[in-house]
């Protein structure tokens, strides 16, 4: 076990001064924050340095904090030094109205699809990405579905036509709806006459 978190902190502070901030170690993993235009510089330094050798991109993803004005979107990078077996995570925050971030594809081929995915779901614009198009969602989609302003469908909604899913119309299987929006069993419908809708 050569590389310690203290040593990483020391090296980063030596190189970038106070710009790399908020060091924490929740659940045993080193985390810190980097200014949004420095992500590539920090990653390049972590990659190139002979002692640090963070040369494996484990994953990258985004998080949306709608109440965090001016820094609504966080982009999280997980890096791994496989030689010393040390992991770290760092975050950059960007404004949701101008979510421009430098791409990591020049450093890691693995970043290509991960960044496309992040763009697809959060609309983060990765500057310099070779092919920044949607990957999992349909191409015609005109919004970014993982943002918090798009809540999941209310499971108790009544206005949906479930007929295509074998649930027999909006009132549920084996039932029908009457004019005054009450649900009755299908076998009862002869009794209410023309009140059915």
């Amino acid at each position: 076990m050569g590389l310690t978190y203290d040593r990483i902190k020391e090296k980063l502070t030596e190189k970038f001064g106070g710009q790399v901030s908020n060091f924490e170690e929740p659940y045993g993993m080193l985390c810190f924050e980097v200014p949004k235009d420095m992500n590539l510089k920090v990653m390049q330094f972590l990659y190139d340095d002979d002692e640090l050798r963070f040369r494996f991109l484990t994953t990258l993803n985004a998080i949306h904090y709608p109440d965090n004005k001016g820094r609504e979107l966080a982009i999280v990078y997980h890096l791994h030094n496989m030689v010393d077996n040390v992991r770290l995570r760092f975050k950059i925050y960007v404004d949701i109205t101008k979510p421009d971030v430098f791409t990591a594809t020049r450093l890691f081929e693995a970043a290509n699809w991960l960044e496309r995915e992040t763009y697809d779901f959060y609309g983060v614009n990765f500057i310099g990405h070779p092919n920044l198009v949607r990957i999992l969602n349909v191409d015609e989609m005109d919004y970014f579905p993982m943002r918090k302003e798009y809540p999941l469908e209310d499971q108790t909604r009544k206005d949906k036509d479930d007929e295509m899913f074998g649930r027999g119309g909006s009132a549920g299987y084996g039932t029908v709806k009457t004019e005054d929006d009450t649900t009755i069993a299908e076998s009862e419908k002869d009794n209410v006459g023309d009140k059915l809708i």
Binding site: T58, T59, N61, I63, H78, E109, A110, W113
Partner: peptide, 30 residues
């Protein structure tokens, strides 16, 4: 390969954000 779970909890009853590191998705690029 490495199947990762990145779980962020804000103290609620459901995760605030959950990201799956799916090994297949990452290496199929190659």
């Amino acid at each position: 390969g490495e199947l990762g779970f990145y779980l962020i909890s804000d103290g609620g009853r459901t995760p605030y954000r959950l990201h799956f590191r799916r090994p297949c998705f990452i290496y199929y690029q190659a």
